[in-house]
Write a protein that binds this DNA or RNA. Structure first.
Lengths: 336, 336
DNA sequence: AAGCCGCATTTTATCGATAATATGACGGCA
DNA sequence: TGCCGTCATATTATCGATAAAATGCGGCTT
């Protein structure tokens, strides 16, 4: 338990603690013989720096947090894209989760927790603009996610409306006329479910089709199970449809299950498109057409903004809308 | 930037810093009027404790790390099970990843990084027994994963052989005679790919079937893409088979894609079973039969062992083999 | 009335590293 | 020979909280 400290190393090498620090951090020059003696002592005692003490004194942790609603699916995939970018700067990435609940999210961005990190990427799921506005921290922070955020934060979001429009228009082009917006809502605040609904709506209008409010089908949570249940309810209700735009790929997977169970063939009877282009979308038969959110591009943009802040930049915050593109696969009739 | 410190609060409230600490931590009793004054000062100044300073002095972070090879899929799902258990004790869970590379994994368990945490759950993917044996830390630590580990570590692993045997026997029972072991290997060291192969082999022998080495098909990485490619190669080679035991569900998803592309019907032409019972397995048509690894049970066991260590227990380490069961779905003929 | 005790609060020392500053040895130059 | 500058290394102070020990005060006992 008795950890080896810098003072122990200093004693062993017959120098002062400061010299050990200088050797290890290459801050001030140290003569070669002294250096060698220090290194030998470090090796002999198996010394490792106490990062907590360094943090307290030097004010730096070389660690960045990515705070997510949940660890799995979308966020897990994007975190794996972010990690190498952070590591390239010699920093460490850690994930924390908020359970998508506003209280947890507030707690996660409390000044206390943020002190552990040199910078924070926060995926906003539960907090609204006003709650975010109460977050007053000088920490470099970049927000990710589809909700509205205060201007003073750097923010990266997706072209939600455009993506939904692309997917919906594609299904219309290939013959669908009654397309469900599964997991969407008529909320007025900007958020994922409403922005994507707006895109779905625009595609319909562009094609001269009616917007039927019954086609907007909410889900209880953003899980495959909820997507499946919601779609089964629609099928049971007898409401006719020949296409499904699912607000996320996870929901789309639930839709695939519901359609299969109900004997509806994809894409012959019903076309289906999702959003996010998760890895899974390539492999689930017949291949899920999906709006590609360009995880890597989003990761690079967000990390770039964060890096700039950590380097001391204090210019105005940026609000980036990441472009999307449609990846066509077998679940729509344009696909293979 | 100028953070509010405990000394600032003390000055504002007209007491000493120690009294502020006592109020906030409820360590020593403090008179109500004083308490109220301190709380008022805390609120007025918006004070939040500096967790780094507390950590340095008190030696406690109230944070547990779960160190995983990658953030997505299996580990993301299990992390979401672990998080609530850690939070129930008033602690925080953070994830770190190692990219499944031994160097990163060694770095992640370096004494330096571990100092940030009160305890560590380490999912071993890259390190072998000898490398792990070099990890000498007094930190509470519990290992997860299918590799052999030194006795002195607490360890939770799955009943790999039994799970693979169950899945394979189930497919034999329903008529398969030539079952591939996709993603398995003939390695002699205990690891996921070889233990599960052993279970597959045992099921074959139990049924009086030959073990054909060509049926053991390795994959380059544990990804769906690699699973798909490997199975497509087998199909192209003309080697006949009528069942696939995939070493993980992620690999199984790749197999589903390969079979679909090749016009082979599941489960009519080929039965398929995976391992892990990821959420996805319920929803991918026709439903993926899978060995359920009981994520929640594993999470509870691992956290229980960790909790005990963090509470000061120093008895001998435990090596738990978590039981598994087969969840039958449409990808095998016993399913719906 | 003297002494002691319990309780609230303060003081001091400390966790381990590092920024800022001080010291001291040596070489160069007039 | 004496002074100064340079470079390597040592000292001191500090980051902010907290454990442990010290103080001080009023009440109770005898």
């Amino acid at each position: 338990m008795a950890r080896v400290t810098m003072a122990d190393v200093a004693r062993e090498a017959g120098v002062s603690a400061m010299t050990v620090s200088n050797v290890l951090n290459e801050r001030l020059p140290v003569n070669e013989p002294t250096r060698a003696r220090v290194m030998a002592a470090v090796a002999a005692l198996g010394y490792e720096v106490n990062l907590t003490a360094r943090h307290l004194r030097a004010g730096r942790t070389d660690t960045v947090a990515f705070i997510v609603p949940t660890f799995h699916d979308y966020f897990g995939e994007i975190a794996d894209k972010i990690a190498p970018l952070i590591e390239a700067d010699g920093r460490h990435l850690v994930l924390e989760r908020t359970s998508a609940s506003p209280e947890y999210e507030m707690a996660a961005v409390s000044v206390a927790r943020l002190q552990f990190y040199d910078g924070v990427l926060l995926s906003v799921a539960g907090l609204d603009r006003d709650q975010l506005d109460r977050v007053r921290t000088p920490k470099p922070i970049v927000l990710l996610g589809e909700r509205d955020v205060p201007d003073r934060f750097n923010h990266v979001r997706l072209a939600n409306e455009e993506g939904a429009r692309l997917a919906t228009a594609h299904m219309i082009e290939h013959g669908s006329r009654r397309i469900l917006a599964l997991g969407c809502t008529f909320d007025t605040a900007h958020m994922m479910s409403s922005d994507r609904r707006a895109g779905w709506e625009r595609a319909l209008r562009d094609a001269g089709l009616d917007v039927d409010a019954r086609h907007v089908v909410p889900v209880s949570t953003y899980t495959s199970a909820a997507g499946r249940d919601a779609l089964l309810d629609v099928i049971a209700s007898g409401l006719p449809f020949d296409g499904v735009f699912a607000v996320t790929d996870v929901i789309a997977l639930g839709a695939i299950a519901a359609l299969a169970e109900s004997g509806l063939r994809v894409p012959v009877d019903v076309q289906l498109a999702g959003f996010d282009n998760l890895d899974m979308a390539r492999f689930v038969p017949p291949g899920l057409t999906s709006v590609d959110a360009n995880h890597e591009g989003v990761a690079e943009t967000a990390v770039g903004l964060l890096r700039r802040q950590m380097a001391g930049w204090t210019g105005p915050a940026e609000h980036v809308v990441a472009p999307v593109r449609l990846v066509v696969r077998g679940s729509t009739r344009g696909g293979a």
